[in-house]
Design a protein around this nucleic acid. Structure first.
Lengths: 113, 113
DNA sequence: TTGACATATTCCGTTATGGGTATATGATCG
DNA sequence: CGATCATATACCCATAACGGAATATGTCAA
């Protein structure tokens, strides 16, 4: 097997830096493809391809407006990511040198059962 | 150019489901490679390869204990992810039909400056 | 309809993935 | 030392990424 498709889920889609930049630009406003291309300094076909990926994982939505296609954010698709990562917040402090203590704490808490 | 290396940052490293499972298992405790392999139901070489990636992006740390190598979580490496995703929380509700209102709110807030 | 503009798709080449299998390295013990 | 257990690395394969360039699709205007 190869690497999972970028369109398989939000995790894969946001692994690409340019796609994260696109989502950043779409915070709170709609933008046309050409506007995105200008802001990103990327050729239009490249932007369209990234947008296709983001569309497939529902991270953005499109709407046609004359010749233009306006893209907007659908931040809810980031929720699985937010939730998964959030589950590690309590371990931010538990680095290297403090880990042993944490293991102890957890073990003791378990023994109380 | 091809896709960015899985080892280029945490975003790419956690795009792989099995690697996320590994991090889940390492929450609050150390585990040996063989233990991970058992829990995951994966062949040992596969696990070792995933661990290599996680090591390179500092998501895990190793320590030798006799024949075994004990891996532990370094959740702080997830912080960039947490912070980036967190920046979108305020837009979770701002889906599709509510977007226009949010744009208005933001515009008004800006006008107040 | 034709032309111009905006966007999407296709094709190409380079690169690296993840899985499987085999093998190398490392550490312990007798 | 030699044997064994634990882990890491090497190799092969099929797949697909991303970027660039060219082209197709779609929409409007005259």
């Amino acid at each position: 097997m190869a690497r999972a498709a970028t369109t398989s889920d939000a995790f894969n889609a946001i692994a690409e830096p340019q796609r994260r930049r696109i989502l950043d630009l779409l915070r709170g406003r709609e933008l046309a493809v050409s506007e995105l291309a200008t802001e990103l300094g990327l050729p239009q076909p490249g932007v369209s391809k990234h947008l296709r990926v983001l569309r497939e994982v529902e991270l953005v939505r499109v709407r046609s407006d004359g010749k233009q296609r306006l893209y907007c954010l659908n931040a809810r698709a980031l929720r699985p990511v937010q939730e998964w990562v959030g589950g590690f917040e309590q371990f931010w402090e538990a680095s290297f040198d403090r880990l042993d203590e944490y293991v102890q704490e957890l073990k003791e808490a378990q023994d109380d059962d």
